[in-house]
Amino acid sequence: MNEVIFAKDIMLEQDVKKYFEIMLESAIRSHMTITTIFLKCVHSTSSEVNHSNVNTQITDFLTENIRKTDLLFQLADGEHWGIIFLQSSDVEANAFLKRIFHLLKKDSTLESRVALKASITEIRNNQINFEILVEKNKALLADNNQQQWWIEQIEDYRLQSIELVKVSIIEQNAIFRKVLETTLNSMDIANFTFDVTAYEDGYSFLQSNTYQSGHLHLIIMNDILPRNNGLEILHSLRTMPNEKRFLIYMMSERNSEIAALNAYEGGVDEFIVKPFNLRLLEAKIKRTFARYWL
C-alpha cells in the first residue's frame, strides 16, 4: 500500500477548506476574481520514480515560484497540489503555468521523469464550494491518457452574478434630465443592471434616502443645482461610511482647470464639461464598470 507523503510546511486540504469560503465571499464583495490551479504529476505512478522525493521537490519548486499573495496547498490524496490566486484571472494563471512548466522542463535537479498537468478554474460567483472545486478538478485531471504539460480549464464559475446598481441623475433641466435617463436606461453593461432615478435638485435627492442603500451607486449630477448644489451633495456622500460605493460624475458648464481641480479634490470620479458627447459619457461609464472585475 502506498503511503501518502506530504512535504513539510505546506497547507493541507482540510486547512484551506476553512478559509476558502471566507476568501471567496470577500473577493466577490470586492469585485475581485479568484483563480485556482490544480496540478498533478503525469508519471507519478512509475516505479522508477521516488514519490517522496518528487513530492518534496515539486512542493519546494512551487513554493519558490508562487507570489506572496498566492496560497499553495496539497490535497489529501498526496497527488494533487492546489494554488489559489487572489485578484487574478485565468490569464495570469495560464501565464504562471507556462512559466513553471518551462522552468520544470529545463530543471536538471528534478527527477527526469517528472512532468505535470494542470487545471484552471476562474471563479467570479459563489455558486461553488471547496468540495465541489476539488472534486471537479480531480475528475478533470483523472484521465491517465492526458499528455504531459496539459492544461484544462473549468469555465462553469467565471460568470459573475448580475449586480444591481442604483443610478441617480440630478439635473435641473427637465429635457436634458430625460435624455440622461433614457441614455442610462438603455445602456447595456455586462453583469450590472441599472435602477435609474432622476431628481431636479439636490434637496430632493438628499431627501430620497436612495443613497443610504448598500448598493453600488452611480451619481451623475450638475455642479450647480437649486437647493443643495452638487458640491454639497459631494461632501455629504464622501463623508458617509462606505463612501467608496459611490461613483460620482460631476457635470459642469465651467470649463476651467480650477473648477475641475476643486471637484476632483472634493472626491468626484469624473468631471465632465458641458456640452459633452453622450457616447463619451457612456464609454466612461462602461470603463468605470469594466474596472470592477479583473
Binding site: 433641466n173 429635457i175 436634458f176 435624455v179 457635470m251 458648464e253 458641458k274 456640452p275 459633452f276 458627447n277 453622450l278 457616447r279
Partner: peptide, 13 residues
Amino acid sequence: EMIFSSYLKNITN
C-alpha cells in the same frame, strides 16, 4: 426651441 437649446447647451454631436 426648448428641446434644441437644451441639447445644444449640454450635448456635442
